[in-house]
Measured scan of single mutants.
Amino acid sequence: DHWHVHIDGERIRLDGASEEFIRTLEELIRRGTDARELKEIIKEYLR
């Protein structure tokens, strides 16, 4: 599956992301997590 998110107007691909990770991201977004912080979390995950 190819997922991607838009954060700060930037399109970030989440290739190979699990549904669990996507749900976690959605939860963080709902909580109002800062965009820079979200991008860091995604970069760490994709390593």
Rank of each mutant, 00 (worst) to 15 (best):
D1V: 08
D1N: 15
D1F: 12
H2T: 12
H2P: 11
H2C: 05
H2V: 12
W3G: 05
W3T: 08
H4E: 14
H4T: 08
V5G: 05
V5L: 08
V5N: 02
V5F: 07
H6G: 03
H6R: 07
H6Q: 09
H6M: 15
I7T: 01
D8G: 08
D8C: 05
G9R: 03
G9T: 04
G9H: 05
G9D: 06
G9M: 03
E10A: 04
E10K: 06
E10D: 07
E10I: 05
E10T: 06
E10Q: 05
E10R: 04
E10Y: 07
E10W: 05
R11G: 09
R11I: 15
R11H: 15
R11K: 15
R11V: 15
I12P: 01
I12S: 01
I12T: 02
R13S: 15
R13Y: 15
R13I: 14
R13G: 15
R13E: 15
R13V: 15
R13Q: 15
L14V: 14
L14K: 01
D15W: 15
D15A: 08
D15K: 11
D15M: 11
D15L: 08
G16F: 10
G16Y: 10
G16P: 03
G16I: 06
A17N: 03
A17D: 03
S18P: 12
S18R: 05
S18T: 12
S18G: 08
S18Y: 03
S18Q: 05
S18N: 08
S18A: 09
S18K: 06
E19I: 14
E19K: 13
E20I: 10
E20D: 09
E20Y: 12
F21Q: 02
F21C: 01
F21T: 02
F21M: 05
F21H: 01
I22L: 08
I22E: 01
R23V: 06
R23W: 08
R23A: 09
R23K: 12
R23L: 09
R23N: 06
T24Y: 14
T24F: 11
T24I: 10
T24S: 10
L25K: 00
L25N: 00
L25S: 00
E26R: 14
E26L: 15
E26I: 12
E26G: 07
E27L: 14
E27S: 12
E27Y: 14
L28H: 06
L28D: 01
L28N: 02
L28R: 04
I29E: 01
I29S: 03
R30D: 05
R31L: 12
R31A: 11
R31S: 10
R31D: 06
G32F: 06
G32W: 04
G32P: 02
T33P: 02
T33I: 13
D34G: 12
D34N: 14
D34P: 15
D34T: 15
A35Y: 07
A35P: 13
A35I: 10
A35K: 07
A35F: 08
R36L: 10
R36E: 11
R36K: 14
E37Q: 13
E37D: 09
E37W: 12
L38P: 00
L38T: 01
L38F: 03
K39C: 02
K39M: 14
K39V: 08
E40N: 12
E40A: 14
E40Q: 13
E40R: 15
E40H: 11
I41D: 00
I41K: 09
I41T: 06
I41M: 12
I41V: 10
I42L: 06
I42S: 00
I42E: 00
I42F: 02
I42T: 01
I42Q: 00
K43Y: 14
K43L: 13
K43A: 15
E44I: 08
E44W: 11
E44A: 13
E44G: 07
E44T: 06
Y45K: 02
Y45I: 03
Y45L: 03
Y45C: 01
L46Q: 07
L46C: 02
L46W: 13
L46K: 06
R47W: 10
R47Y: 10
R47K: 13
